[in-house]
Design a protein around this nucleic acid. Sequence first.
DNA 1: CTGAAAGCGCTTACAG
DNA 2: CTGAAAGCGCTTACAG
Lengths: 329, 329
Amino acid sequence: MAQLANVHPATVSRALNNVSYVKPETKARIIAAAAELNYHADVFARSFKKGIRYTIGVVVPNVHMTIFDDIIQCIETKARALGYYILFCHTNDDPEIEAQCLNRLRAGFVDGIIIASTGQNNALLREIHLQGIAIVQIVRNHDEKLSSVVSDYEEACYKAVHYLYDKGCREIALINGPSLGRFAIKPYKTRYEGYKRAVNELGLRAICEFTDGVINSFASGVSCAKKLLDENPETDAIMTAVDVYGMAALRLLRERNIKVPDKIKVVSLTGYSVGNLLERSLTSFELSAKEIGDSATQIVIEEIEAKADNKPLVRHLTFAATLSERESS
Amino acid sequence: MAQLANVHPATVSRALNNVSYVKPETKARIIAAAAELNYHADVFARSFKKGIRYTIGVVVPNVHMTIFDDIIQCIETKARALGYYILFCHTNDDPEIEAQCLNRLRAGFVDGIIIASTGQNNALLREIHLQGIAIVQIVRNHDEKLSSVVSDYEEACYKAVHYLYDKGCREIALINGPSLGRFAIKPYKTRYEGYKRAVNELGLRAICEFTDGVINSFASGVSCAKKLLDENPETDAIMTAVDVYGMAALRLLRERNIKVPDKIKVVSLTGYSVGNLLERSLTSFELSAKEIGDSATQIVIEEIEAKADNKPLVRHLTFAATLSERESS
DNA sequence: CTGAAAGCGCTTACAG
DNA sequence: CTGAAAGCGCTTACAG
């Protein structure tokens, strides 16, 4: 490349990056040569030299049938616009896989990490952060020392109970994910808190089932719904932590020929757009995947680019969920 | 690091990579020092030196509510097991975004690319391939000069017609994506061919609607279904190219109070697991996301690692779709 | 305005 | 068995 244009590689770099003045005719010669050879500067080598990878690791539990499919698209779009790539990892909520992914990412491949963590690798995450890699938690804020972008699950769940109460429901049940003990995952825990707050306030009975094992499993949602109805035949509303559980509830209710919403109302607390695509559409508290994805990306890149200035930048953002009322309530 | 263990960096490299014999006590000293400093070799620098990126670019239209959410998880799992990362890009089926993504990927960041392309950047893809980057097409085989892993859409669609015919349907309609003209996308085109083959063979009338604009749009699926029913009130079966269109059909049929499957049967031709999570579950010809994802990853990595041997390795794999009979038919 | 040199953090023939 | 050197493909102060 350099020899074709008859200049020094340094000049090629200067010309192609518009980084310092190059004599117009030299520049023209370089550009012509680049076109002829179909030359593309090796971005990898540049990143290596400059110490910036222009890459963000995104670590999420799953994208299949979860809000993360939407969030990851928003992250990628935003990152691309800002000149960054996305390195994608999914953990299935297995702490070991998560640690494995994080350890590979830290080894020089990314400038920053956006993660919805299991909460079991906080120490590792802090270590990686200290090493100089920007970190933003999304959806699950397991460590307040690290930036986070989440929804207000407590409030959404609290409001959902009130919403159903106002509709006349008095036996309001919750199908939730792991929210107690060592393996509790933050948003489930917080939803449970919002649920209890509302239920206590309104003098209702708490009826709660926790899916165990695999998170976001339809089958697990169905068995929770079964157990719920068998043990609490008076139930007149079912709130579910995520859409897939809501779909599971709708499914079981149809099998049992229980009219929705007349007899039992169903509300999902993590609406992602599937709720509106159903035969009987699902009322839900919608998170804005775009708000979460966009701001997480923004924050992680700001943190990356502030590194030079050595400002510590830990920020916490919380978005409200908005009620989308549909047919199931 | 090297000075703490009191050895040359080269020795550190040898010890940590087990690449040549190092005196046990030296090695022990190095490992101890690495542990103390929490040292992780910079994989990026290594990749740079060795000319291998251990990274695969994955370019797909969308992951939200499409089979690609599943495929990309399978690719990532497989790639991780084989020591590769996934760089994720989504194009929204916009040829310009696709070109932009490809041009960034080619600039030294990946050893290989797995793509479900729009079909509008074949020349660019070949150029990138010639440049030495392995390429495997998934789901959409727009260029036979490049490896591909697809399902047999023609056959699946052909079989679906027969399946419905055998159930007594005589007015079998198809809601399809772009399958004609310059912007046709391969699997839609192939499904259409399978449809026509079966319909001709059975002496049926072809009733076909094509969604335009955004692929995989629920709203577009609903309007196709509307048009279909308005213009062909005798319709007794609706086949849809993808699950989202199937859901759209189910939705509209419920709104119109048309009994499924008694009056009209619905079959999706790209089952991904949502079909089984619905109130009325959706019969579909299931693609194996795992088969496609795993083998695409395998092939692209084989192609990458064969590069050294300079063997040209273009392979085409076709998997059959399997019928999952559910409530909608 | 542009060349020559140094260097990003590793790996790998080459010596010894 | 391990050091010293070269080099992956760029960028960027430093000269001139």
